[in-house]
Design a protein around this nucleic acid. Structure first.
Lengths: 217, 217
DNA sequence: CCCTCATATCACCGACCGGTGACATGCGTA
DNA sequence: TACGCATGTCACCGGTCGGTGATATGAGGG
């Protein structure tokens, strides 16, 4: 025991110290941030938690990203493209009517959001804490949504007498709220949102609402 | 300066020291808790913040309520009755059809929630942080909702072929998400939610959805 | 080979948090 | 009047947070 500073207890692998590769470290930090956010939500999302998860010093977050702000921006820029990919369905026949389009839109969004804890946590973050930190994420998510809708719409036009954007946004909002509530508490307003059968009820109701709104004279 | 412990700087009114009234103090603490929650959200909702706002020592929160848990329960028990009162409209003609009932239900809920920052913050809390602390609030809110719906429904019965609870819960969820997003960021998915005109768009869309779902053959 | 600099780590700071024990004080009562 | 207890106050603890300056260390170029 020449140097009794007791640092050896924390170093099981002293030979392989560290890769010393900035790009790799940055990627690890971003991945850690996404994991922390997806698992713990924006509560407990901070420099310390991300650094712990990435197994590096938090100083690197400040050096490479300029703090949490820059890190969140980096996540946001990734998120936009990733979200669109997650929503797109490559070999799908284009919808025949606008009601078909709207129905497919809403139900696809339901499945995609339900399968994505990270986006769920971001959406919850948006409503629970209107901090400037989350503004870029909100923006990225919103732009991805409208681009996806525009691309999926193609040249279909909604009935002129209807406010299709308002109708769609109401149903999108419904899906988002139900998915968030289902993920957090398993129900909403007395209706269970756990099993696939529960969600089939919701899907049926959504279909009914879309059909009734768009197909009626 | 006989006792130079410097406590005089913090006592501008030494004569009126304090009322020494437990019931009054408890009420002040509950009121402070509701204010903190309504203004700052569940972030920054803690013993220290509430005690500061109530202008008393946080020790009293532990003594009188057994900690934050008991305080939240006290708020929850108040909330249930208060919510129902806020939603009820005394001298209102009963709805003629189930579609009328549903439409009135949804739109009333929209206005009531939009006017209540406290309930908004509680709703946001529910989806953002599924902690046991908020469970009683969720419960109180849910029970108030179903009682209110049952009381408003009277003896009207929905069309047998429809899953009315599912349809209603979808629209209630939509309203809640839109109100929360509007309050936090002023928009949702690219649609503005600030002015009364914006909300009239939403109301029209909701009406259209209700009519289409319930009145169609 | 050595020097340099980017990379990574460490130690520390002030602030705030939830929680608790000890103390002061005034009200009701014996 | 004097005591006891409920009410109110204060100081302190351990812990975590965001943020920063100083320092080690390894890779690559002269």
């Amino acid at each position: 025991m020449t140097r009794a500073v007791t640092p050896e207890t924390t170093l099981p692998e002293p030979a392989e110290s560290r890769t010393r590769d900035r790009a790799r470290t940055e990627a690890a930090i971003i991945a850690a941030a996404r994991q922390v956010l997806a698992e713990s939500g924006f509560q407990g999302f901070g420099v310390n938690a991300v650094a712990r998860r990435a197994d590096c010093d938090k100083q690197l977050i400040y050096r490479y990203f300029g703090g949490l702000e820059g890190l969140v921006e980096a996540i946001g820029s990734q998120l936009a493209t990733w979200l669109e990919d997650s929503l797109a369905e490559p070999g799908e026949a284009p919808p025949a009517t606008y009601a078909d389009l709207a129905e497919r839109l809403i139900l696809r969004f339901l499945d995609a959001l339900r399968a994505n804890p990270l986006v769920q946590k971001i959406a919850a973050w948006e409503v629970a804490d209107p901090s400037p930190l989350v503004a870029c994420l909100t923006m990225a998510r919103g732009m991805a949504m409208v681009r996806w809708i525009a691309r999926m719409r193609g040249d279909l036009t909604p009935p002129a007498a209807l406010d299709a954007p308002a109708l769609n946004v109401v149903l999108i909002a419904a899906v988002q709220q139900l998915v968030l509530s289902g993920a957090s508490s398993g129900m909403f307003s007395g209706v269970d949102l756990r099993t696939d059968a529960d969600w089939d009820r919701i899907r049926t109701a959504v279909r009914r609402l879309v059909r009734g709104a768009y197909l009626e004279t």
